[in-house]
Design a protein around this nucleic acid. Structure first.
Length: 496
RNA sequence: GCAGCUAUAGCUCAGUUGGUUAGAGCGCCUGGUUGUGGACCAGGAGGUCCUUAGUUCAAAUCUAAGUAGCUGUACCA
């Protein structure tokens, strides 16, 4: 006996994976639909690609070890080829574009949503499987496509029910930071170098760690709450000062209009070539969205945005929720719900030729919990459903006929399909959160009527019942009606 | 990866300086009520006290290692 028990496998879902049901699932679908509808309004095409790609295509390479790359779920297929679960939707897009390059319209603009997988340590609000909704524009160098991304981003977020003022699109350019770091004359620095990336990473943590944390990371290093130590970039004090000054300006400029903000920036570091180029690009984007009527309530210039260290090459955008979230012991910023930017070199790897591109990606779980917090989600939206009880198993066909009639009238209805008695069936209906139970037994049959039991009303009444006799009767919230008028009665009852 | 914390019933947790049969609330099941879910009453099932080794007359309790989880941090093409 005990050995048998030992064999019983503990039902446990892998960490970082979620089961979705009920309201959460409905909400996911709703968000996906409204965002995709926005993308579609802009003229983007829908695309689906598989969730598995060849590992080398996905951008990883086979090292000498057994596993291709950290962070990616990978395995060998029958042909001894390494395949991987997609870690984002861009990799599939890149492959698709390179494969069908000649037949696609250029620029090619498409949207896609789906689950992506990362084999990483999950944390609060971070999963190993999560849902992304992307839109990308392939094959355009034009600032118009960046501007379009920002505007569409803003529209998409508003379409989910988040109101203007509760979010903002922060626009920046990677070249601004490149220019800044370039002007510091740090030895060994160039775009993509270790020291360059270390600085970028430190700046990226401004939101979470604040100016002080960034200062520590740029210098010697930083100790976290648990006592663990992170080694810093080791810059000289003068350089750190410059960067911090710049970041402070970034914080200030959030409150300025875009034009003013860009003017200030160019005054501050105008002499650097890379920097000037960045300002010029941002200026063009800003003019386009100005004319289109997207003001600073929706899109701001914020020089502290870093985004995806790897493949972004120009303008970057991030959607931030601006309200605070109050937890038990602290008040935190809700933070980013998605982002994107220009990546001019990504498809080059698969295609050879340079393919300038820009894209955005929205993470749905964050957005969903934000909406839940704002109470915009339709929580416990009253479900309209009816369970027809099986009182006499011989007469099942009759019950099915009733359920079928109700369905024709647009009322979701089901017949109990289990083996339990009446008590068990009502328990079932209760757990299903059905609104009504229909009872047609001997009593009702004799008068060709049917009893409608309002489960919600009964539940409410139950708190007031103290007398056991009254309880026993169980008839507080019931109504017996003629079988012919059933549909009408239900419609009046539910105010349809 | 690094660091800190934690591990007792399905869930949330209590368990005294190491002491005899390990508890509570919720949930679940049964009955009160063979035609009534949800209130109420009565009863019941459910435990490798994470694993292994050690200390001890005696370990859920102390020690060590391992494992898993949580939190922070790092990484995240």
């Amino acid at each position: 006996m005990s050995s048998e028990k030992k064999k019983k496998i503990k039902p446990q879902r892998p960490r970082g994976f979620e089961d979705l049901s009920g309201n959460d699932l409905t909400e996911l679908n709703r968000l996906r639909d409204s965002i995709q509808k926005t993308y579609s309004l802009y003229g983007f095409d829908a695309l689906e690609t598989g969730i598995i790609e060849y590992s080398d295509v996905i951008g990883s390479f086979l090292p000498d070890q057994d596993r291709p790359n950290e962070g990616v779920f990978s395995f060998e297929d029958d042909d001894n080829k390494w395949v991987s679960l997609r870690y984002d939707l861009t990799s599939g897009l890149a492959r698709y574009v390179a494969e069908n390059y000649d037949s696609l319209p250029k620029p090619y603009r498409r949207y896609q949503s789906g689950w992506v997988f990362r084999n990483e340590k999950p944390g609060p609000g971070r999963f190993r499987q999560f849902f992304q909704i992307d839109a990308d524009s392939i094959g355009s160098d034009n600032p118009l496509s960046d501007a379009e991304m920002c505007m569409m981003f803003s529209d998409a977020i508003e379409s989910t029910g988040i109101e203007r003022g509760d979010y903002v699109i922060r626009l920046n350019n990677r070249k601004i930071l490149d220019g800044l770091i370039d002007s510091l004359n740090i030895s060994g620095n160039k775009s993509g170098s270790d020291i360059n990336l270390a600085i970028m990473r430190s700046i990226d943590k401004l939101d979470r760690l604040g100016l002080k944390g960034v200062e520590q990371l740029l210098g010697e290093g930083r100790k976290d709450e648990s006592g663990d130590y992170t080694k810093g970039a080791g810059l000289e004090n003068s350089s750190i000062k410059e960067i911090l000054l710049f970041l402070e300006h970034g914080i200030d400029s959030k409150n300025l209009n875009r034009k003013k903000s860009l003017e200030n920036l160019s005054k501050q570091f105008g002499s650097n070539d890379i920097f000037s180029e960045a300002i010029e690009e941002l200026d063009q984007i800003s003019s386009i969205i100005d004319v289109a009527g997207y003001d600073e309530k929706r899109i701001i210039v914020d020089p502290s945005v870093v985004r995806g260290l790897g493949y972004y090459t120009g303008p970057v955008y991030e959607a931030d929720l601006t309200f605070n979230i109050e937890t038990d012991d602290s008040i935190e910023k809700f933070g980013s719900v998605g982002g994107g930017g220009r990546y001019d070199d990504l498809i080059t790897r698969l295609k050879g030729a340079r393919v300038p591109s820009a894209g955005i990606s929205v993470g749905v779980s964050r957005l969903s919990s934000a909406l839940k917090y704002l109470k915009k989600q339709n929580i416990n939206k009253e479900k309209l459903s009816v369970v027809v009880l099986v009182m006499d198993k011989e007469k099942r066909s009759l019950y099915y006929k009733i359920a079928s009639q109700l369905r024709s009238a647009g009322i979701p209805s089901e017949c109990y399909v289990g083996d339990g008695g009446m008590k068990a069936q009502l328990k079932y209906a209760d757990k299903r959160q059905a609104r009504l139970a229909l009872i047609l037994g001997e009593d009702e049959e004799a008068s060709s009527s049917i009893t409608i039991k309002d489960l919600m009303a009964g539940k409410e009444a139950s708190g007031e019942i103290l007398d056991n006799e009254e309880w026993r009767s169980g008839k507080v919230s019931q109504k017996t009606v003629s079988l012919d008028s059933l549909v009408e009665e239900i419609k009046t009852l539910l105010e349809l």
